[in-house]
Computed example of a mutant assay.
Amino acid sequence: MMKIVVLSDTHMPKKGKSLPERFVKELPSADAIIHAGDWQTKEVVEELKGYGLPVYGVYGNVDGEDIHSVFPYKQTINLNGYRIGLIHGHGEKKTTEKRALEEFKDEEVDLIIFGHSHLPLTRYMNKVMLFNPGSVTDKRKLPYYSFGILTLEEEVHAEHIFFS
């Protein structure tokens, strides 16, 4: 079993001074962290790496060269036998989820993790799970902040954690 904590759109320090306690509480039992972009500053990268876990990520539309130099626009990672596509999801036309799906149309992936919309989502399209964790620091008009937990075993278990 592998537990991955997933977050996106931290927009720190603009939308939050530090990672929320509810999010940090999950890290001791996690095997990896995935961030789907819009970190805003390199300090977020350093803070997450400070927990001693592998940190996978991509850059988003608000990220500058400091983040571009660490993370790609998109990537595919293999974790516990699953191929996971990772992208922020920004762009022109279409919905964020359709843009994310389109980016991996020529690749065989089991799961696509994306962000950008700040809207938590779990759904299947064309036998591929799409997962957006929402945002731990910028809920916009939603009632709660959110992040995700993926458990990779014989099947993928995806869960959103909502908190205020």
Rank of each mutant, 00 (worst) to 15 (best):
P72D: 10
G91F: 06
L79H: 06
N78Q: 15
V70Y: 12
E103L: 11
K98F: 14
H88I: 00
G89V: 06
K98C: 08
I87C: 01
F104T: 00
N78Y: 14
Y73G: 05
T95F: 11
T95K: 12
R83V: 09
E97M: 09
R99K: 09
G81L: 09
H90F: 11
E92L: 15
I87K: 01
G91C: 06
N80V: 10
T76Y: 13
I84G: 01
Q75G: 11
F104E: 01
Y82S: 11
E92D: 15
L86I: 01
G85T: 03
Y82R: 13
Y82Q: 09
E102F: 10
A100Y: 08
V70I: 14
G85R: 04
I77R: 04
K74A: 10
P72C: 12
L79M: 13
E92R: 15
G81M: 09
A100C: 12
L86R: 00
L101V: 06
I87Y: 00
R99G: 03
L86A: 02
N78L: 14
R99V: 08
K94R: 14
I87D: 00
N78C: 13
H88A: 01
H88N: 03
E102V: 08
L101A: 05
Y82L: 07
Q75V: 06
N78K: 15
A100V: 07
N80A: 11
K94A: 12
L101S: 02
I84K: 01
